[in-house]
């Protein structure tokens, strides 16, 4: 059972308070959907959980370990934050293989399987720089999930995807949801977000405005 606890987290960059007094507990087996306008703080919250930024005040505690003190980054995490960026001179598969070589915990067959699952051809020798926006996005999602991490953060995962690809992403998220992971998704499409998430966290001006559960039909669970 994985658990993320965010305690009194605030982050100021320059004169802007980008996150303000965030208190949240995130548990495995639940898909969390971050909802909010542009610049509301969704991506910053994702960066905070990933350890990419450090707090001005407060803590992120992952499985009893304080981020920035006990650990620099979460021990098992996959991220797609903002635009995916890969090495332009390599193919999609080669890019993923190279990233996977750092932890060395996923083999080529698994990478190929995840690529195929999202509709990418692992044997395609096309360089990343020639990829379409949608293909780049799918490669970013594969990168986030291929090592089977405990925490998965997907910022706008269905951006630039066609309908068929959106369905594939939904299937993948539904599958990994059953694997006892903490999944955090930000998405501007309310319908898709409500479909994918079990719990919605609304953010406004860097603060949590509201949290509520949604049911299988994407309807707000009034009892939450």
């Amino acid at each position: 059972m994985n658990k993320i606890k965010i305690e009194n987290y605030s982050k100021t960059i320059g004169k802007n308070k980008v996150l303000s007094d965030i208190n949240l507990t995130l548990e495995s087996g639940i898909v969390y959907g971050l909802k909010g306008k542009n610049g509301s703080g969704k991506t910053m919250l994702m960066r905070a959980i990933s350890g990419l930024i450090s707090p001005t005040v407060g803590n992120v505690i992952i499985n009893e370990k304080v981020l920035g003190k006990d650990i620099s980054f979460p021990e098992s995490i996959g991220i797609l934050i903002e635009n995916p960026s890969f090495l332009p001179q390599y193919s999609g598969f080669d890019n993923l293989k190279m990233i996977a070589s750092i932890k060395n915990c996923v083999d080529d067959e698994k990478i190929k399987m995840y690529m195929s699952e999202l509709g990418l051809d692992p044997d395609d020798t096309k360089k990343y720089r020639k990829y379409s926006l949608g293909m780049k996005q799918k490669l970013g999602i594969v990168c986030a999930i291929m090592e089977n991490p405990d925490i998965i953060i997907l910022d706008e995962p269905i951006n630039a995807l066609d309908e068929e690809s959106v369905e594939k992403v939904k299937q993948v998220i539904t599958r990994i949801k059953s694997e006892d992971k903490i999944i955090i998704i930000a998405c501007h499409n309310k319908e898709e977000l409500f479909y994918l998430a079990d719990k919605i966290i609304e953010i406004e001006d860097g603060k949590i405005k509201r949290e509520y559960l949604v049911d299988n039909n994407g309807e707000i669970n009034e009892n939450s």
Binding site: S50, G51, L52, I71, S72, F73, P74, E75, I77, G78, I79, I81, S85, F86, L87, I99, I102, K103, C143, E147
Partner: peptide, 14 residues
């Protein structure tokens, strides 16, 4: 500023 973020979270150590 790009690809390296994937590396940071995997190498766990700045």
């Amino acid at each position: 500023n790009g690809y390296g973020k994937q590396i940071f979270i995997r190498c766990q150590d700045k």
